[in-house]
Write a protein that binds this DNA or RNA. Structure first.
Lengths: 333, 333
DNA sequence: TTGTAAGCGTTATCAC
DNA sequence: GTGATAACGCTTACAA
């Protein structure tokens, strides 16, 4: 069943059918109804491929992220898909692995399907060497590229992010103001976002007068149990700490686990803070004080910018939101 | 840059270029190299839309689920996308809302983009009345439909699921064997999966000789805090319980929260079990005993079956896996 | 207001 | 082994 069949049954030309389908006007109400009837009766739906070929767009955006089952990334995927759909775009999802080759390969996969734009979610795509970022720049020559929580300067590349530096700076200061004297930082890796969070921690510590902040930061790239072990080790090594600043909620649950196992009261003996305001923060007992990293804003802004870019409008190459501390039970009143 | 440009530069016909692109043989090694060189030099990639139009497929599958940010659904999306990609299919994600209309609408959206198959994730699509399931059957007339953790009989409809009934039955029996005498069940809703889990609980209780099992089941459709309140209420109402069987890990974290707030020791005073073996079970302290619902198997099986169906091979209309209990710290040794 | 016809960029069926 | 050429099903000037 194609547009010719419909035109024949309706006794009009395919051009008229097309006009009815696309509401392009210039069709008398009478013919319109006649055509609509035939379409209805035959439950005809236009062929998306032919349409795409003619228009050179399928109104589909590509979403690239590492592990879509991660609570944070899953939330981002959800918001993005919703916003895209609200703007008549469908979403093609692609989860890359950690290797550079895979990222490049899966990006190519998205591009080869002629998506209209690509969204990179998370801080794991931009690397230190500009050589390694070439693949992103090349993609941007074909379609607009949106980096969510990451930053890269370049033509047709747009970064939308949360001010992680400031948020962790604020959070660390909040802990100081609530009586903490010896905070430690748990970070996952040196990703773009990771580095900024570390920066915020160091800044706050320096401002406060803490000299050894560099030695109070610990990398926890592994599974949860490893995070707990690392804190045990820190304690055994004689590094005293009365608060843990974690760069994500999962690491924070590790700190909570450490506290509960060692019968430390929260927030009296140990204060803990997380990041992302995810389900992990609220499912924890006690509920973890965390940062709302404005993910929903980031996603809706990114989609709005995509629409504008595709309409050849000017949009800022970098948009930054401020995080917002959500105080729960792992920090003092 | 299209196939004509390449053919011209290479001094061959477009047919030959096409043959080289698709490795359809019947091209001399010499011409092949010549064409490949031109392709390489121009960084030419074939137009996906034109290709799709000719072949009438874009090798893309549709994934429909309610809330892709839910830990369980997000995990499913991740596994599905990975398996699809491994089989050269891309994934179009669409998150429907709870209303019937939205589900129908978003399914149409997927179909209108000519996906090759549709995967429904989760137990929220099939309804009691066959009238309400008409839209699924109609979809199955166009493309094969795969229901993950749900069941519906029909042509071109394939159900792949975990035996939730048996798993909860087993889990409840495990609690009895570990000394529980007064279990309660926390369920979310009467979805397909929800009903089966309830059935398993009731069966185990009856077998054990518990008469009032029907009055020991509580619906917790709301947010976490509400779940805790419901347990408080149950306690206040004088319904004694020494174990909580929750139909998902989030509900189980609610029970853990209740226990910790009331200074009940786990597992001595209260045993708690969850479902899905998600990050919530392990992030909780104590770690929650839960059911591995074989989601990864379910997803890879579904994709394997899709490939077979599209090759006109016969596949079972219903595939069932057994859940697997993962004992952690909220149940006794 | 409506119809004709060209184009979109492939794949595939023929001949040769 | 290679080359014309006809689909594939739409959109959209342009003509009427």
């Amino acid at each position: 069943m194609n547009i010719y069949d419909i035109s024949e049954q309706a006794g009009v030309s395919i051009a008229t059918v097309s006009r009815v389908l696309n509401g392009s006007g210039n069709v008398s109400e009478q013919t319109r109804q006649k055509v609509l009837d035939v379409i209805e009766r035959n439950r005809y739906t236009p062929n998306a491929f032919a349409r795409s070929l003619g228009l050179n767009t399928m109104t589909m955006a590509g979403i690239l992220c590492l592990d879509a089952s991660d609570v944070y990334l899953a939330q981002a995927v959800y918001y993005l898909e919703r916003e895209l759909r609200n703007n008549s775009y469908t979403s093609m999802l692609c989860c890359a692995g950690h290797s550079h080759q895979e990222k490049e390969e899966y990006l190519q996969l998205l591009l080869s399907r002629n998506v209209d734009a690509v969204f990179f979610i998370g801080s794991h795509f931009v690397e230190a060497s500009s050589e390694a970022n070439r693949y992103i720049e090349e993609a941007a020559q074909k379609v607009p590229v949106f980096l969510l929580n990451e930053e890269l300067a370049g033509n047709n590349i747009y970064s939308i992010l949360c001010d992680d530096y400031m948020a962790i700076d604020d959070m660390t200061n909040l802990l100081f103001s609530k009586g903490s004297r010896h905070p430690v930082l748990l970070y996952r890796d040196l990703s773009f976002s990771g580095q900024r969070k570390i920066g915020g921690f160091l800044h706050a510590c320096r401002e406060y007068g803490l000299k050894d902040a560099e030695h109070r930061m610990f990398s926890c790239p592994g599974p949860l149990e490893e995070t707990v072990q690392i804190l045990e080790k820190v304690h055994e090594d004689g590094i005293a700490f009365d608060s843990v600043v974690a760069v994500d909620d999962e690491l924070a649950t590790g700190a909570v686990k450490y506290a509960l196992r060692n019968h430390l009261r929260m927030p009296e003996d140990l204060q803990v803070t997380g990041y992302n305001n995810s389900v992990l923060a609220t499912c924890s007992t006690p509920e973890i004080t965390t940062v709302d990293s404005q993910l929903e804003f980031i996603c809706s802004t990114a989609v709005a910018q995509m629409v504008q870019v595709l309409q050849k409008q000017q949009v800022p190459s970098r948009t930054m939101f401020s995080g917002c501390i959500v105080e729960n039970l792992t920090t003092r009143k």
